[in-house]
């Protein structure tokens, strides 16, 4: 059996990669993908922990819901990014800064 710590390490790595992507990519879609990485890190955790939660298996339920909601969020975000492209002709977030102080 794979020890729990391995799951956690992988999930932490995923999470970190996600954050890195979110912070560094010059493309909104890539940011979205980074967010997906982070979400999946969490979902992996849930599933892994759920093994030790025999009775309720809440973790698994949680993972399912999270996948669904993540999909919805991504769909909405993609639509919005599309819209942005319509007006800015770019999806580089560093160039989309009309709203600022």
């Amino acid at each position: 059996m794979i020890p729990l710590s391995h799951y956690m390490l992988i999930s932490a790595a995923l999470f970190s990669i996600g954050i890195y992507a979110v912070l560094s990519k010059r493309n909104a879609i890539m940011i979205l993908i980074g967010i997906e990485f982070m979400l999946n890190a969490a979902i992996l955790n849930f599933v892994a922990f759920s093994k030790h939660d025999k009775f309720a298996a809440s973790g698994q339920v949680f993972a399912l819901f999270a996948i669904v909601l993540a999909a919805a969020a991504v769909a909405v975000s993609l639509a919005i990014i599309l819209n942005v492209y319509k007006y800015y002709k770019t999806i580089d977030p560093t160039k989309i800064d009309k709203l600022r102080d």
């Binding site: 967010i35 319509k86 977030p93």
Partner: peptide, 16 residues
């Protein structure tokens, strides 16, 4: 444009 920008920031920030 501003509205789309706002919504993009909102969505991405929120998702993150």
């Amino acid at each position: 444009g501003k509205q789309t920008e706002a919504s993009m920031k909102y969505a991405l920030f929120g998702s993150a």
